[in-house]
Measured scan of single mutants.
Amino acid sequence: MTTFKLIINGKTLKGEITIEAVDAAEAEKIFKQYANDNGIDGEWTYDDATKTDTVTE
């Protein structure tokens, strides 16, 4: 398992969460579901060097 981080730069929700996932694709799926569940819809970027997804509304 690898640690992945999501940075949220939303209009109403800001912060970050960290998860353990098998790979980047699994982490992205989990993060996008989390964002959807919390009403966050924005531009996504991924930095492989830091294993960090960022969503900005």
Rank of each mutant, 00 (worst) to 15 (best):
M1C: 14
M1D: 02
M1Y: 10
M1G: 05
T2Y: 14
T2K: 11
T2M: 11
T2S: 09
T3I: 13
T3N: 03
T3W: 11
T3D: 02
T3C: 15
T3A: 05
F4H: 04
F4L: 02
F4P: 01
F4C: 09
K5R: 09
K5N: 03
K5A: 02
K5F: 12
K5C: 15
L6D: 03
L6F: 15
L6E: 03
L6M: 06
L6Y: 11
I7T: 02
I7N: 01
I7K: 04
I7A: 02
I8R: 00
I8W: 14
N9F: 12
N9L: 11
N9K: 08
N9V: 12
G10P: 01
G10L: 14
G10R: 01
G10M: 13
G10V: 11
G10W: 11
K11D: 09
K11Y: 10
K11C: 15
T12R: 04
T12H: 14
T12V: 12
T12E: 09
T12S: 08
T12N: 10
T12I: 10
T12Y: 14
T12G: 10
T12K: 10
T12L: 10
L13W: 15
L13T: 08
L13C: 15
L13A: 06
L13V: 12
L13G: 10
L13F: 15
L13Y: 14
L13N: 06
L13S: 10
K14V: 10
K14D: 06
K14R: 10
K14M: 08
K14C: 15
G15E: 11
G15M: 15
G15R: 11
G15K: 13
E16K: 04
E16F: 13
E16P: 02
E16Q: 12
I17N: 00
I17R: 00
I17F: 11
I17A: 00
I17V: 07
T18S: 09
T18I: 12
T18P: 00
T18A: 03
I19N: 00
I19C: 15
I19Y: 02
I19D: 00
I19E: 00
E20W: 14
E20L: 13
E20M: 14
E20S: 10
E20Y: 14
E20P: 01
E20I: 13
A21F: 07
A21G: 03
A21P: 01
A21H: 05
A21W: 12
A21N: 05
A21S: 02
V22M: 12
V22L: 12
V22G: 03
V22S: 11
D23M: 05
D23V: 06
A24D: 01
A24M: 10
A24W: 15
A24Q: 11
A24F: 15
A24R: 15
A24Y: 15
A24T: 03
A24E: 06
A25W: 09
A25M: 10
E26H: 09
E26V: 05
E26T: 12
A27K: 03
A27L: 05
E28N: 13
E28D: 11
E28K: 14
K29E: 07
K29S: 07
K29P: 00
K29L: 07
K29I: 09
K29C: 14
I30R: 02
I30L: 09
I30H: 05
I30F: 14
I30A: 04
F31M: 07
F31S: 00
F31V: 01
F31C: 05
F31Q: 00
F31P: 01
F31L: 04
F31E: 00
F31W: 04
F31D: 00
K32Q: 09
K32A: 08
K32D: 00
Q33M: 07
Q33I: 06
Q33P: 01
Q33D: 06
Q33A: 10
Q33F: 03
Q33L: 06
Q33Y: 04
Q33V: 07
Y34E: 02
Y34S: 00
A35P: 01
A35H: 03
A35V: 12
A35Q: 02
A35R: 04
A35M: 13
N36S: 14
N36D: 12
N36Q: 14
D37P: 02
D37W: 05
D37N: 06
N38L: 15
N38D: 02
N38K: 07
G39S: 04
G39T: 03
G39Y: 06
G39Q: 04
G39H: 08
I40T: 02
I40S: 03
I40A: 03
D41V: 14
D41N: 13
D41P: 02
D41W: 13
D41H: 14
D41A: 12
D41C: 15
D41Y: 15
D41I: 14
G42L: 08
G42D: 04
G42H: 07
G42R: 03
E43V: 14
E43F: 12
E43M: 10
E43S: 09
W44T: 06
W44I: 03
W44N: 03
W44P: 01
W44Y: 03
W44D: 01
T45K: 06
T45S: 11
T45I: 07
T45Y: 11
T45R: 08
T45G: 04
D47A: 05
D47Q: 07
D48H: 11
D48G: 05
D48A: 12
D48V: 13
D48Q: 10
D48P: 14
D48W: 11
D48F: 10
A49D: 11
A49Q: 10
A49E: 13
A49Y: 09
A49P: 07
A49I: 11
T50M: 09
T50G: 07
T50I: 07
T50H: 06
T50D: 04
K51W: 09
K51Y: 08
K51S: 05
K51M: 08
K51F: 11
T52Q: 06
T52L: 06
T52S: 05
T52K: 03
T52N: 03
T52F: 06
T52Y: 05
D53P: 08
D53E: 15
D53K: 15
T54Y: 10
V55W: 05
V55C: 09
V55P: 08
T56R: 05
T56P: 05
T56L: 05
T56H: 08
T56V: 09
E57P: 05
E57L: 12
E57Y: 07
E57I: 13
